[in-house]
Design a protein around this nucleic acid. Structure first.
Length: 264
DNA sequence: ATGACAGTCTGGGACTGA
């Protein structure tokens, strides 16, 4: 079973790239972020024609998440209990979607497509929102794992955090900025404290994002901010991981590239 | 070559991203 995550930065602009990627990489489940459209605007037909089902969650032109699967879909969950909103706690954004599929071994696998809030600047309310959002997600997912230690679950997407200094092209450039602060790194590490394992770090080394500006990609000035956490039962089945750097090339790329894992 | 930012909106620049 091959699982991937990709911040696509508008599905309407890049649906052809998505279909080509699914077929070229033989993907079973793909989590998308920043689809940037309402559900009724989502280009379903090209993806369905390739043999996949789509579950989309988009409220407006901002954010938006989706899960694409060619394995049977058993259950769908929009957002997670305790998810905070912005700017009001009640105003939930389209940043989390959980889709349970029938795994290749017959066991259900729940795949979360996550678009963690950016945080903007450290003194911006969006930064506190980011930390609260992550804390609520860690509490929710940790509780699910305590209920069922055999749970097969991924938490994957654009985490908007660089856990290590080496995950950014120049740590000095990020001094005083979001993505590299200790509270963000602690929030990321809490998922490991809850028992999840980030399964791509040990298997592949690359950035996953390069800004469109300042020739960041040709100069390889990137960031590693897209990750896949897996529950212990799923993590033990991971055979390999890849970062599809070539997807940053050519005409009209997203600024992020896909992260892929192979599960037995 | 991978090349100097890109997507969406009921727009005429503003907002968002990181």
């Amino acid at each position: 079973m091959r699982i991937a995550t990709w911040n696509i930065n508008s599905i309407r602009t890049r649906v052809d790239r998505v279909v080509a990627f699914l077929e070229r990489e033989n993907i079973d489940v793909l989590a998308l972020q920043e689809t940037k459209c309402k559900d009724e605007q989502f280009p379903l037909m090209p993806i369905e024609a390739a043999g996949y089902e789509v579950v989309a969650h988009g409220l407006n032109q901002w954010n938006g998440v989706a899960v694409v699967s060619r394995l049977p879909i058993l259950n769908t969950q929009v957002g997670f209990p305790g998810q905070p909103g912005f700017p009001d706690p009640e105003n939930l954004e389209a940043r989390a979607l959980g889709v349970t599929v029938e795994g290749s071994s017959g066991t259900p696998v729940t795949n979360w497509s996550l678009y963690v809030p950016n945080g903007r600047e450290i003194d911006n309310p969006h930064y506190a929102y980011k930390l609260a959002w992550l804390d609520a997600l860690a509490n929710y997912s940790g509780e699910r794992l305590r209920e069922n230690p055999e749970l097969q679950m991924t938490l994957m997407g654009d985490w908007n955090i660089a856990p290590l200094d080496t995950d950014v092209w120049d740590i000095d450039f990020f001094a005083g900025r979001t993505h590299v602060t200790q509270p963000e790194r602690d929030a990321f590490a809490k998922f490991a404290d809850e028992g999840f394992k980030e399964v791509t770090r040990d298997l592949v080394d690359n950035y996953t994002y390069w800004d469109y500006q300042q020739l960041r990609f040709p100069k390889n000035e990137g960031m590693r901010i897209d990750y896949i956490y897996a529950s212990p039962a799923l993590a033990s089945r991971v055979q390999s991981a890849a970062i599809d750097r070539n997807e940053r090339k050519g005409k009209g790329p997203s600024d992020h590239v896909p992260v892929i894992i192979e599960v037995d």
